[in-house]
Design a protein around this nucleic acid. Structure first.
Lengths: 215, 215
DNA sequence: ACCTGAACACCGTTCAAGT
DNA sequence: ACCTGAACACCGTTCAAGT
C-alpha cells in the first residue's frame, strides 16, 4: 500500500501507477489494475497458464475490455503477477554473490529459482523458459536481471573450478525451468523436484576428468 | 498398408482395424479413422498440442461427431499419432540391452528418446511426462513398454557401477522429457537439447565420490 | 453401426457508445 | 481518459436425426 513497500515493484514494472504518458492514473483505473492483478494471482494459482481471462475480469468486477486496456496480452498480465517474486529472487542472488562458498551460493540460488519456477502451476517455469529463448530480447527487464544474477553466480563458481567449464548460463537456467515443468504435476512433486535438482547439481560439479571407456 | 508392416502398431494400439466388440470395422469407419490420424499428425506437427480438433475433422472430411466417436479424448488421438514412434523406441531399447558397453547403450537410447520427445512441437514430451506422473497407471500400454525398456537400460548401467546409485528410472526419463520441453522453442533448439543431455549424462556418470567442501 | 450437422456453452478480442 | 457491454469468430462437446 505505502509507496515505500511498493517501490521495488514499481521500479521494475514501471506501469502500475502511471499511464504510458507518465501522468498519474485515474483513481478507478488504478483500483481496477490492482484488482485485476490480485484476481489473476488467485486464478493462475488455481488453474495455471490457462486460467480464463474472462473469469478474472469478472471477479475483478470489470468488463472484458478493461482487462485488455490494462494488459494487451496474456503475458503482460502474467508478468505483473510474477514481478514481485522475481525481484526477490534477484535480491537473494545479489546477496549470495558475497557468500564465500561458490558452489553453495550457486546451489542455494538455483534452489530458490526452482521454487519460484514451481509457482502458479508451471506458469512461472513457462515464462522463464520463453524469456530465455529470446536471449537478449528477454520478455521483461526483471527477467534480464534474473538472468544476470544467475549468470554471475555460475560464472564465479566456474572460474574457481568447482563447476564444469562447459556449463552454459542459459542452459543451467533452462534446466531449472525444465525440472519445475517436469515435476509440476507429479504425485510427489516437490520431492521429485529436489531429486532432479540434485541430479543437475551433480552434473555441474567438477570432480576431475570422467574416466574414459574407449580411447 | 500390408498386414505385415502394420503388425506392430496394431498389436500395440489394438483399435485401428476392429471395433471394441472385436468385429471388423465398416469400410467407411476404417477410412475415416485413418484419415483422422493422418490429418492429426500433420496438424500436431504444425501447431503442437493445441491443434484444433475441429480443423482436423474438417481436413479429414468428417464431421465433428465422428472424430469424437473414434477418439473420445484429445489424448486418444495423440496416442494414435505417437504409437508407431514409441514402438520403434521400444525396439531400439531391446536391441541395446544386448550391447556390451552399458553406459553407451543407455546414452544412445536416451538420445533417441529425446529425439522422440522433441517431435510434434513438444507434444510427445508432454505426453511422456504425464504418462510418467501416473506411475503404474501409465497412459497406454506402449508407454509402459517404453518405461520398462528405459528402466532396464538404466538398472543395468547402475548395477555395473558406471552410473550413480541414486539415479531413479522415472526421474531420468522425466529429465529427458523436460529437456525436450526446455529446448523446444529455442532458436538453437537441437543444439541446446544436445548440450542439456550432455549435462544430464554427466550428472548420471559415476566418477567416484564428489569432493566434499565441509566435513 | 456409423455419420451428419445443428445446438450449446464457453472462450479471447474488438469496438462503438457512454461518462 | 477510461469503462461498458454487445458483437464477432472460434472452440470443444453433445445428441437427435438420418443411412
Amino acid at each position: 500500500m505505502s509507496p515505500v513497500s511498493k517501490g521495488v515493484v514499481i521500479a521494475l514494472a514501471g506501469h502500475e501507477s502511471r499511464s504510458r504518458a507518465g501522468r498519474p492514473r485515474r483513481a478507478d483505473a488504478r483500483r481496477n489494475y490492482e484488482q485485476l492483478v490480485k484476481q489473476a494471482r488467485i486464478a493462475f494459482a488455481e488453474f495455471g497458464v490457462d486460467a480464463s481471462l474472462d473469469e478474472i475480469a469478472r471477479r475483478a468486477g470489470v468488463a472484458g475490455g478493461t482487462l485488455y486496456r490494462h494488459f494487451p496480452t496474456r503475458l503482460d498480465l502474467i508478468e505483473a503477477v510474477l514481478a514481485e517474486q522475481i525481484a526477490e529472487l534477484v535480491d537473494l542472488g545479489r546477496g549470495l554473490l558475497t557468500v564465500e562458498d561458490d558452489f553453495d551460493a550457486l546451489s542455494t540460488w538455483l534452489r530458490a529459482a526452482l521454487t519460484h519456477a514451481l509457482t502458479y502451476r508451471g506458469l512461472a517455469a513457462a515464462v522463464m523458459n520463453s524469456a530465455l529463448d529470446r536471449g537478449n530480447g528477454l520478455v521483461s527487464t526483471w527477467h534480464a536481471e534474473m538472468f544476470e544474477v544467475g549468470a554471475a553466480l555460475l560464472a564465479r563458481a566456474r572460474q574457481s573450478g568447482v563447476v564444469v567449464a562447459y556449463a552454459d548460463e542459459a542452459d543451467v537456467l533452462k534446466m531449472v525451468g525444465a525440472i519445475a515443468w517436469a515435476a509440476q504435476d507429479a504425485p510427489d512433486s516437490s520431492a521429485q523436484a529436489d531429486r532432479l535438482l540434485a541430479l543437475l547439481m551433480n552434473g555441474l560439479r567438477y570432480v576431475g576428468l570422467p574416466h574414459q571407456t574407449g580411447d
